[in-house]
Amino acid sequence: MAAETGTPTTLTLKSNDDELFSVAESAAILSVTIRNMVEDGCAGGVIPLDNVDGKTLASVITYMNGISAIPADEEKKKSYRDKFLSDKDFETLADMVLAANYLNMSCLMDAVSAKIAQVMEKKSVGWVRRKFGIENDYTPEEEAAVKEEHKWTFEGVETDDDN
């Protein structure tokens, strides 16, 4: 996409599955990784992002555009983040946290981590294992020993409900 005169600078990002995305530089520099490239003058052509696939990058760019359109108002940014993450399934969240880590976007990383934590907390161990496909590689004896060690943490409300 050729830059038209008078429009803000746009950058072209390339996912690891060769999808190309145009994004305004002002939004893209939310990523410290990209900002460093821009500052070092390495952002002229296409910026390859080897650790991010197209689907995830599209999501991240939606987030970049959304959050950078909000003026400095932490409350509004927070509610945008909450809304943005509310409909994401776990697989997407996991991809996004990895992408946020690679792109060095701490605000997205914190928000996604908090969201995953929110899903996990207060749920029973069985629920978390099922939901996230965590393989229980403890022997029954080992599992009983860990449970005994942290006995006090297993008291209280746990739920198997999906909500």
Binding site: A114, I116, A117, V125, V128, I134, D137, H150, T153
Partner: peptide
């Protein structure tokens, strides 16, 4: 980082997962 966003009690409880 994810565990740190949970209440401490829930965070410790993750040790039982695997």
């Amino acid at each position: 980082l994810i565990i740190s966003y949970m209440p401490v009690k829930c965070g410790i409880r993750t040790s039982i997962l695997s």
